[in-house]
Design a protein around this nucleic acid. Structure first.
Lengths: 204, 204
DNA sequence: AACTTCATTAACCATTTGGTTAAACTATTT
DNA sequence: AAATAGTTTAACCAAATGGTTAATGAAGTT
């Protein structure tokens, strides 16, 4: 091999960096630990990504690129609000079961450095509320759902779906459940949350 | 002054540590920065709190002791579920306006170190669901609210109230609002969220 | 006033950590 | 096979960082 950096090594680094960064955060992660996880020399991290900040940004962007389509899904398809809510809830919970750390990771690191989001906003996949806004207004107009702003509805959908994963340790303690019980509680939400939202907004 | 550690200094340190830890987290915070913020020598931090971990735990406990009563409020008074939901939502949002960093801080650090909660669980003020459970069951039985488990209802209440603050940078970006607009959006939730919840669970 | 005790500081220390460098290695090109 | 160019490593480095220490200050006790 020549001329081209070994893509395999690069992927290995990203994979290891993802593991370490997502469990320890930018500040808690150590370059040596990432190198060990990847099974390579620490200098390689710098050879491929120059420094810790750039490596972190690569991991962060990858994570966001996985999450963004999940959010956009609620916003940009053509089904009714009710169907959207049901699909989103069920899709999101499956998604999390595969990528459990992503939402906490993104929210945590955005709190640490809010300017970070500016680098993502340009991205064409960045979730956009426009279409959803029109749809909510229309359904309200038509009397299909009770008056609510698209922003508030969106926040509610996100909150009910994402929060149980982000606040897992706290909620586990308060509900006095073990891992298995909490997992069941969360899985039950696949339908519970959708029903809860729809109950609230649908007209009688 | 003698015999007693200068309480003023101790308070100054805790105040400074709170500021730094809550904005940078345990890993991102620097002892020197805390000392500077408190306007004292770095050695004082160790004199009063021995090491970084213990200083952090003091700050964390203080934060949790502020938050816990807010949560217990929903669970332990005697009003109806509907009144409780309204009171909690309105109280919680006022609370956050005074202590904006607390919930993110707690959730973030619990994710970093889930065992941390064990140190809090013993505390008599730790939120307990027992009473709330009975109440929900009763109101369901009486047909006052639709069937829902106390755990799910509690998670929903928490999610709808806490999430907008924890995920502020992300939600600000997606809703394309500036600080002022987002603040308004959140303040509107004082009543919006309560209505949303009650709409969903009340029987017709 | 001498003594004792806690509070505070400046200087110091060992370790950790992100990052660098020069050399070795590997594969491709000529 | 010699030259070339990218890849990988071990060793190294300077700065940052949590923590310590020995000396000084200040206040109460005798």
């Amino acid at each position: 091999m020549k001329k081209k950096k070994d893509e395999n090594t690069e992927v290995q680094i990203l994979e290891a960096a993802k593991t370490i960064f997502q469990s320890k955060g930018m500040d808690g992660a150590r370059m040596q630990e990432i190198a060990d996880e990847a099974g390579i020399n620490k200098a390689m991290l710098h050879y491929y990504f120059r420094n810790k900040q750039l490596l972190f940004e690569a991991v962060f962007k990858n994570a966001f690129l996985l999450l963004a389509p999940q959010l956009s899904a609620v916003l940009n398809d053509n089904s009714s609000i009710e169907v959207k809510v049901r699909n989103f809830t069920s899709n999101y919970i499956s998604f999390i079961l595969v990528h459990p750390y992503i939402p906490s990771f993104i929210i945590q690191e955005l709190n640490r450095n809010p300017d970070f989001i500016l680098k993502l906003k340009d991205n064409p996949n960045f979730p956009n509320l426009e279409k959803f806004k029109k749809q909510v207004e229309e359904e309200v107009q038509q009397g299909l759902i009770k008056p609510i702003s698209a922003e508030q509805l969106f926040i509610n959908i996100m909150a009910l779906n994402v929060f149980p994963f982000v606040a897992k340790p706290l909620l586990k303690a308060i509900t006095a459940t073990n891992d298995e019980q909490y997992q069941k509680l969360v899985e039950a939400r696949t339908t519970e949350v959708a029903d809860f939202i729809i109950n609230s907004i649908k007209t009688i």
